[in-house]
Design a binder for these strands. Structure first.
Lengths: 139, 139
DNA sequence: CTATATACTTGCATTATACAACTATGTCGG
DNA sequence: CCGACATAGTTGTATAATGCAAGTATATAG
């Protein structure tokens, strides 16, 4: 039974997901768990955003995002700006403290990844990044 | 700010994880959720195995695996064989029904993936599989 | 034989999540 | 302008996955 490439990808994705989730669920780097990190990262790189937009981006319920952002606001990592056009809406922005915490986290994650990829050639690293991006674009 | 490859991988992994989890959490293909599928897959491809070994493989608590396997046993997808050497231990084996259910699931997942990868060249598919495998090996 | 370790199960608390109900604001058709 | 409906967000509640701690039964070491 020789495997076709898609089958290999299926198996490896399964292994990857299971390990990655195990390695990152309920674990914090500094003060941020995975969900919080991704939220701050999204706001930081794609600009301020409301609860609804974030919920759509993450394919999560608005109530979930509402609680997560409330927690991050509580910790002082972001603040809300009332939308001048729409009295119901807010948009979230990182505070300086949130920006700093995000940077610390990103740093730690990059170091971890760099260590894992230290034996890879630059070409393989680039190729992997490109293919991951390509894969993400098909979602 | 030009990104180094590791940074690209970090970002893309974040996007990937979030989407993949959103797409597969609390969703079942047939009768199997993600955890159940991976458990059956592990037993099927790596041979019968006890609760402790599975817990280590998945980096989960034994209690979690104990409940998951009990549920799968309840559904008739696997059965326990008492370890003849050790009265405390069992090993799990797939039943015919479990094997069939796993095959159905795998089929569905492959079709889904194939659809997502339909515009990729065979070379890119192979390369992605290889790199994922290489990445998993560094864990 | 006793003490300790191990494989597994079960009880309990925590957490992330979805769904539904609710509030407040906006929009549209008359 | 008003009433009906839509929308952004919050909060209450239920569910499910998980970890930890305690318990059971068996093994092993001194």
């Amino acid at each position: 039974m020789t495997k076709n490439p898609v089958e290999t990808i299926e198996v490896e994705l399964g292994i990857f997901i299971r390990r990655f989730i195990a390695a990152t669920t309920n674990k914090k780097v500094g003060n941020l768990d995975r969900a919080a990190y991704l939220l701050l990262h999204q706001i930081s790189t794609h600009g301020s955003s409301g609860v609804k937009a974030l919920a759509e981006e993450f394919h999560l319920d608005m109530s979930t995002i509402s609680r997560q952002t409330a927690a991050l606001e509580q910790k002082g990592y972001l603040y809300r700006i009332p939308d001048p056009q729409d009295g119901r809406a807010y948009s979230m922005q990182l505070t300086d403290s949130g920006t700093a915490e995000l940077a610390l986290n990103k740093q730690a994650r990059l170091e971890y990844l760099t260590k894992h990829l230290q034996d890879w050639t630059i070409e393989d690293q680039q190729r992997f990044g490109e293919l991951l991006n390509k894969f993400n674009c098909t979602f």
